[in-house]
């Protein structure tokens, strides 16, 4: 109940302001207009074809890119956490990947590959790998030296060391990386779609922005927030709790 209170107050303020102060429903849509747009989206009705097809395309791009980025970032992060040389070698490319704005990456990749799915996926992989890499490297560095020496003593090496020791040891870091990169990905994927793709939620948001209707834009914002929160509550949250419990049990 207490969690819902700020939301209720916020909606009340929103309604009051858009009904009595900023009376421009096209630019400042009241909650009921946004709700109507939400229902329209959920009924699969959109100006550029079925909304589910656009949402599906966006989610597929996001999941593909996020999965690739997570695997690459984790593997490189483990290596960099163990070997200072690898970390130093990767440091500049990682900072370049993180500091160059997503718009620039998308533009470069668009000219390179044309209007293809590889553009947003590559841009997302570039941008999401970097934080996963840094988080994983920090996690590996935090592993106790005693445990590492124990692995050496028992000759636990290679794949077995990665899957049986490193990954369980940094599991909480991995879940944190996954959470952050997924949320980051939701934000970036739309930018990539606006700049050059035939479908996706970004194209719809650009359409409504170009035609100056804010209610559908707010509605898509709410839906994307809901998707992000649902993934966090139903997937990452329970995973984090389970890792914490197992970690406490093993102590």
């Amino acid at each position: 109940m207490l969690n819902a209170a700020p939301v209720v107050v916020g909606i009340g303020l929103w309604w009051t302001i858009t009904t009595f102060v900023l009376v421009q429903p096209r630019l400042f849509p009241p909650p009921q207009d946004v709700l109507a747009e939400l229902l329209r989206i959920l009924s699969n009705d959109g100006p550029l074809g079925p909304t589910y097809a656009h949402a599906g395309a966006t989610l597929l791009r996001l999941l593909t890119a996020w999965s690739i980025a997570f695997v690459i970032g984790t593997l490189l992060g483990v290596l960099a956490g163990r070997r200072r040389l690898v970390f130093d070698f990767m440091a500049n490319p990682v900072w370049i990947a993180m500091s160059v704005p997503s718009v620039v990456w998308v533009f470069i990749l668009l000219v390179l590959f044309g209007i293809e799915n590889i553009v947003p996926v590559s841009a997302l992989v570039l941008l999401l790998t970097a934080p996963v890499f840094l988080g994983t490297a920090e996690g590996v560095r935090a592993i106790s030296k005693d445990l590492l020496e124990m692995c050496d003593s028992y000759h636990v090496r290679g794949w077995q060391r990665l899957t049986g020791f490193y990954l369980p040891s940094i599991a909480s870091y991995m879940v944190a990386n996954a959470r952050v990169s997924f949320a980051y990905g939701i934000r970036i994927v739309l930018i990539a779609e606006v700049i050059g793709l035939p479908n996706g939620v970004g194209i719809l948001v650009a359409y409504w922005s170009d035609t100056l209707f804010m209610a559908p834009i707010v509605a898509w914002g709410i839906l994307l927030t809901a998707v992000g929160m649902a993934v966090d509550l139903l997937v990452f949250g329970p995973l984090q709790r389970r890792i914490r419990q197992e970690s406490e049990l093993s102590r």
Partner: peptide, 14 residues
């Protein structure tokens, strides 16, 4: 297909 106006000329050229 849609793309930002700035990129379109480069896409035609290529």
């Amino acid at each position: 297909v849609t793309a930002s106006s700035g990129a379109l000329l480069a896409l035609v050229e290529q």
